[in-house]
């Protein structure tokens, strides 16, 4: 089972490497959206510092929503998903490995870029660290819950927009605690409570997300 997990993740990474545009689009989208805000609201440092975490987190959510429709769509179109369903591998392992690969290809690069964007917003070093930590804990939630959303909207006409409407409300707790962790650091409060809650949310979504995705995939391919 672990073997199946590893080779599906490896395959996803290999496919992404040969289709670099998809991964880069999401990352560039994230950087552009987060960089538009200082241009729009003006260069007042205090104001920028206060809104930095919220802006970075919202940009990350939008970037995740942009990338999610492709999670199952390509495999669905060429019949690979069907082969995965009839294979002896447990569907839960397949979904988990696809969600993991999605995180490695979108969540992780976003989290690693975020401190650079934080610099644009004049965030102090300790807040940059917390921003990175909050994204490292929070972005897997986007991939896990997102996998359920992607499976539910599979094959639906205009599924991309529907997917956004479906999953963005589910991401609200991640946004609140993720941005809250950074903001509390700025005003001198220990962010560990926020980060722990993010961790708890990650634990819950790793149970619910893939399980819901499995059920939705079985229905989509019926």
């Amino acid at each position: 089972m672990l073997q199946a997990y590893a080779f599906i993740v490896r395959r996803e990474l290999r496919l992404a490497l040969r289709r670099k545009g998809d991964v880069l689009n999401v990352l560039v989208f994230f950087i552009v959206v987060a960089s538009l805000f200082p241009l729009g609201v003006g260069p007042e440092p205090g104001q920028l510092r206060a809104m930095a975490a919220g802006v970075v987190w919202i940009a990350a959510l939008l970037a995740a929503v942009l990338s999610l429709p492709r999670l199952f769509a390509a495999d669905h179109a060429d019949g690979t998903l069907e082969q995965m369903l009839v294979s002896p591998q447990p569907l839960l392992v397949i979904v988990l490995s696809k969600a993991s690969a999605h995180w490695l290809l979108t969540g992780l690069p976003l989290a690693l870029t975020a401190p650079l964007i934080g610099l644009q917003y004049d965030l102090p070093t300790d807040a940059l660290g917390v921003l990175l930590a909050s994204l490292l804990i929070g972005t897997p939630v986007l991939s896990l819950l997102g996998s359920a959303g992607a499976a539910l909207t599979l094959g639906v006409h205009g599924g991309g927009a529907l997917l956004g409407l479906l999953v963005l409300p589910l991401f609200v707790p991640v946004l609140v605690f993720g941005a809250g962790a950074v903001t509390s650091t700025l005003i001198g409060i220990n962010p560990s409570a926020h980060l722990s809650l993010l961790g708890a949310f990650l634990a819950v979504s790793s149970l619910i997300g893939p399980w819901a995705a499995c059920a939705a995939l079985r229905v989509a391919l019926d």
Binding site: A4, I8, R11, L15, A77, D78, G79, T80, V86, P88
Partner: peptide, 27 residues
């Protein structure tokens, strides 16, 4: 073994990589 209408062959992978993956997933 079920082979449907769709070939389940990935454009980005070579023919042998495709066969290797579809065989591995079927144990």
């Amino acid at each position: 073994l079920f082979l449907g209408h769709a070939a389940a062959v990935k454009d980005e992978m070579t023919v042998s990589e495709n066969l290797e993956f579809s065989s591995r997933i079927s144990c």
